[in-house]
Nucleic acid binder design. Structure first.
Length: 495
RNA sequence: GGCCCCGUCGUCUAGUCAGGUCCAGGACACCGGCCUUUCACGCCGGUAACACGGGUUCAAAUCCCGUCGGGGUCACCA
């Protein structure tokens, strides 16, 4: 049997973290089994579904690299893949159920049902649909139909009990009496979720339904519906939900839940995927870093946890840094350039000419950031002219220290005659200088760093020296020397 | 509230089905140290959990019962 799975979001909002993980698990399952990953848009709710939301979901999936084999924009033999375009498909099935007595019409208005529920509650009963639509005689039905009275079509839930053999939750049996005769056709004739899902899944040949645990009670309804329709049941796998720190289902209240927000925050998609994969799934007690091919090879539903997990931003940050460090510098540079341009540090047209230099810069910064947008702020001084450079308070202190000016002067001389061959030779020269002049290495390094960068922290000093180049280094040292001489004239960095 | 699911360090989890090798392992975070020109990275070490109560057993995180706690779901939403 060829595996066919689907991710079926409802375009009533952005793709959130839980949805993304569901998509990922489906995708991994499909890829691992050489199966098909289908994207189906469940837009039967005309009120809340929008094309913009569809686009946003598609964008998010693409950012994560979760490509679909059938679905919007790629097509496929089982389309259309928008439920709103499949309405003609559903009606005959409803007619059939009606004719077979497996469904019936109910003429009760929403208001009527509301009071029914109120009364039930008042009597201390559980609110439930009481099957009143079933009590009409055929004549009454004919009459109301002739009058054009609006009605819904409800599914007639049979007696007995239903067993779901869930791949994650195990065997669960529920009495059918627990599920109400649910609506399959609204009074405007449009079909509802629990009805269309069964038909679409069957038409699309879905073999495994992998989705969030909040759908578990729907699995009961769908299993019943599939039975009535004479279809074959897919295998169900309900994955535990993701909670916010308050242990409640993740929602807007928890801050950034949209996948695209994480893209915009500059996390690498591979980091996000790894993070997502480990939310509710694990391989063994050792491995936490998985690239996509590895995930594809190692993912199993069996190892999906049964208990819900809480979204932990700290861990995401760690993954972020991990993948930034892992990424080859040329590739990272490619990603960094637009970010630097965006920050106004670099002109887009300069990027190509300075490519080699940028790569060195990125390589020097690589262990120091976890998200791309963190980079510009850390490297502004590389892009400023000598006169624009400003200084941190602490850097000024380093420059005003006793003897700092003398050491800067000494280093300046040595730099003038340096070949600037590499970071390593630069460092060797500086160490030799200290040796010769009997200067403690740190005593030289700190003021020089302050003079060149205006900061007290950053990449290795000789990376800075090398990256800045001889002329710029000399100019910056000269300026610092002049400012020290003048006294308190340092332009102080804001913040 | 009914029904269903879940309950191992603060968090993600391994171990639970096949009880002993688990006075519970890894990772993030946190704390300490090392490395070092700073920061970061890296390395070393530390704090920290089997929800509770009974039972079965020579032996229970693992099996059984109960309690408590948490969550999901009960729409003419999906």
């Amino acid at each position: 049997m060829t595996v066919r799975v689907r991710f079926a979001p409802s375009p009533t909002g952005y793709l959130h973290i839980g949805g993304a993980r569901t998509a990922l698990f489906n995708w991994l399952f499909a890829r691992q089994h050489g199966g098909t990953f289908i994207l189906r848009i469940e837009d039967t709710d005309k009120e809340r579904s929008t094309p913009e939301n569809v686009q946003v979901i598609l964008d998010a999936l693409r950012w994560l690299g979760l490509d679909w084999d059938e679905g919007p924009e790629v097509g496929g033999p089982h389309g259309p893949y928008f439920q709103s375009e499949r309405t003609d498909i559903y009606a005959p099935h409803a007619q059939k159920l009606l004719a077979e007595g497996k469904a019936y019409r109910c003429f009760a208005t929403p208001e009527e049902l509301e009071t029914m529920r109120e009364e039930q509650k008042a009597r201390g009963e559980q609110p439930h649909y009481d099957g009143r639509g079933l009590k009409h005689t055929p004549e009454e039905v004919e009459k109301m139909l002739a009058e054009g009275k609006p009605y819904v079509v409800r599914f007639r839930v049979p007696e007995g009990s239903t067993v779901i053999d869930d791949q994650i939750k195990g065997r669960v049996e529920v009495q059918n009496s627990e599920v109400d005769d649910f609506i399959l056709l609204r009074s405007d004739g449009s079909p509802t979720y629990n009805f269309v899902v069964c038909i679409d899944d069957t038409d699309m040949g879905i073999t495994h339904v992998i989705r969030g645990d909040d759908h578990f009670t729907n699995a009961m309804k769908q299993a019943l519906m599939i039975e009535a329709l004479g279809f074959e049941r897919p295998v169900y796998a309900h994955i535990p939900l993701i909670f916010g720190p308050d242990k409640k289902k993740l929602s807007k209240r928890h801050g950034a839940v949209s996948v695209l927000e994480y893209r915009d925050k500059g996390y690498l998609p591979e980091a996000f995927i790894n993070f997502l994969a480990l939310l509710g799934w694990s391989f063994d007690d050792k491995q936490t870093l998985f690239d996509v091919p590895e995930l594809t090879a190692k993912f199993t539903l069996e190892k999906v946890s049964k208990s819900p997990s809480i979204f932990d931003l700290d861990k995401l940050d760690w993954f972020g840094g991990e993948y930034v460090r892992q990424k080859p510098a040329p590739e990272l540079t490619e990603l960094a350039i637009p970010v630097l341009v965006e920050a106004g540090l670099l002109k887009a047209e300069e990027a190509q000419g300075r490519r080699a230099w940028l790569e060195k810069l990125v390589a020097a910064m690589q262990p120091r950031f976890r998200r791309l947008p963190e980079l510009p702020e850390m490297v502004t001084y590389f892009f400023q002219g000598t006169a624009e450079l400003d200084y941190e308070e602490k850097a000024v202190q380093k420059l005003e220290e006793e003897g700092a000016a003398d050491r800067l002067t000494v280093y300046r001389e040595s730099l003038e005659s340096s070949s600037f061959e590499s970071t390593e030779t630069l460092e060797a020269e500086a160490r030799a200088l200290c040796e010769a002049k009997d200067i403690k290495f740190g005593k030289l390094v700190h003021p020089v760093r302050a003079a060149l960068s205006g900061r007290t922290q950053g990449p290795g000093l000789f990376d800075i020296v090398y990256l800045l180049g001889k002329d710029e280094c000399l100019a910056r040292i000269d300026r610092a020397l002049k400012l020290i001489e003048q006294g308190s004239g340092f332009p102080i960095q804001a913040g």
